[in-house]
Amino acid sequence: MIEIVSEQRCIRCDICERVCPAFVFDRDDEGLPVIARQDDCQTCYLCEIYCPTDALFVAERADGPTGITLAEVEARGLFGTYARALGWSRGRAGGTEADPTHRLRVAQV
């Protein structure tokens, strides 16, 4: 589930609020996203890759929060890891031209 919004990294662009398919975020008076409906989160990790500053972290448990802290996410270098693995950057799509999934589909049979 979505667990962490880094206040420091966030530039208050409101993209995550708009693109989250489960409508999980609200914004506070300063425009900072607030995780308002965490239990609705479908753990799709898509807000992470749409965020232009890698300010969001979705933990691996889909059925409840893990309680991971901002400090741990920073220390383990976990912000932005999904975006980098895909080849997305600063909220922009990229990397699908290098997707090797076709090799898996051949090897699978």
Binding site: Y82, A85, L86, D99, P100, R103, L104
Partner: peptide, 9 residues
């Protein structure tokens, strides 16, 4: 390698 790159999620 293909799994990690092709199915990162």
């Amino acid at each position: 390698d293909w799994l990690l790159k092709g199915q990162p999620n």
